[in-house]
Design a protein around this nucleic acid. Structure first.
Length: 151
DNA sequence: GCCAACGTTGGC
DNA sequence: GCCAACGTTGGC
């Protein structure tokens, strides 16, 4: 079982949206490095739900992967902002996962708290210039995040 | 295959 | 809204 951190802007889709929807296809990832991580995600992996462009940015909750290697349908939709004209149904470019809501944390973990708690090397999103929307989180770090979140 | 121009991300 | 740090595009 692997832990991840998924970023999303709560103004468009936040933890409360996921709670209401219960599940969602994590669509719209259009960065190859992030996609490559998504391709390695497996059912039952857990992902921290990070609110980017929030005030303050931070980890809002947790979700679980319920389907792996899901073809992102938005790549075929000309009306979607994630439409990719170079993608074909025979050879889709963008795979992702389906996730289910697990919990909204009792304690929202702001980026300041993350910086106070972890070193840059512990968490990829703390590294300068890091913009990846999907990043792996090692087990030890993940367990410390959970401890803070549930305190 | 280089690289300038352009577009995007996301903290501040 | 600014802008640093990336990532992508396309002419050459």
């Amino acid at each position: 079982m692997q832990y991840w951190l998924f970023k999303s802007e709560p103004e468009s889709f936040g933890i409360d949206h996921l709670k209401r929807a219960r599940t969602t296809v994590w669509d719209g990832v259009r960065n190859y490095q992030a996609r490559n991580y998504l391709r390695t995600a497996e059912v039952d992996d857990l992902a921290f739900f990070y609110h980017s462009k929030a005030q303050p940015p931070g980890i809002a909750g947790l979700c679980r992967v319920t389907a792996a290697n899901v073809v992102d349908p938005t790549q075929f939709d000309p009306d979607s902002k994630y439409f990719d004209p170079k993608s074909t149904r025979a050879e889709p470019r963008w795979q992702t996962v389906k996730v289910r809501f697990v919990e909204k944390f009792a304690t929202y973990i702001s980026i300041d708290t993350l910086r106070d708690t972890f070193a840059e090397d512990d968490l990829m999103i703390l590294q300068k210039g890091s913009r990846l929307s999907v990043t792996p989180v090692n087990r030890k770090v993940a367990e410390r995040i959970l401890k803070v979140a549930r305190a």
